[in-house]
Simulated scan of single mutants.
Amino acid sequence: MTDYVDGYCERVAPGLWGEPLNSLSNLAFLVAAVLVWRLAAGDRAGRLLAGLIGLVFVASTAFHLLATRWAAVADSVAILVFVLVYAGLFPRVFFGWRLWWLGPPAFLALTLVTALLGGGLYLSAVIGLFAFAALLAFRRDASWTHFAVAGAVFALSLSLRTLDRDVCDYVPVGTHFLWHLLNGLVLYLVSRAAVRP
Rank of each mutant, 00 (worst) to 15 (best):
C9F: 15
P105Q: 09
P91M: 14
V153S: 03
I53T: 08
G128H: 02
R165F: 12
R165Y: 13
V153I: 11
V73R: 03
V93H: 01
H180M: 11
L35M: 15
A115S: 15
N26S: 10
D6C: 15
V83M: 01
V126M: 10
P172S: 11
N26D: 14
A148M: 06
A72C: 14
A40D: 01
G119N: 01
L136F: 09
H146L: 07
D43T: 07
A125S: 08
I53M: 04
T175R: 10
A72D: 15
H176Y: 01
P20M: 15
L55H: 00
P91E: 15
G118N: 07
G42T: 14
Y8P: 00
L65P: 05
F82S: 03
W97R: 07
V81C: 08
L136R: 02
A142V: 13
G42S: 12
F95P: 03
R98I: 14
A109L: 06
L163Q: 02
P14F: 02
P197H: 08
F94G: 01
L117W: 05
T175K: 06
L110P: 00
F82N: 02
A45R: 13
G174M: 06
Y86T: 02
W70G: 04
A78Q: 05
V85F: 09
L21M: 14
F94Y: 03
V81H: 07
G151W: 00
L121V: 15
A40L: 12
F138T: 11
D141F: 02
L99N: 12
W37P: 08
D43L: 08
G151L: 06
A133V: 11
A41H: 10
G42L: 13
A155F: 01
A125H: 00
T111S: 12
R140N: 15
W179T: 06
A137C: 07
A137S: 10
L123M: 10
T61S: 09
A13Y: 01
Y170L: 15
R192I: 07
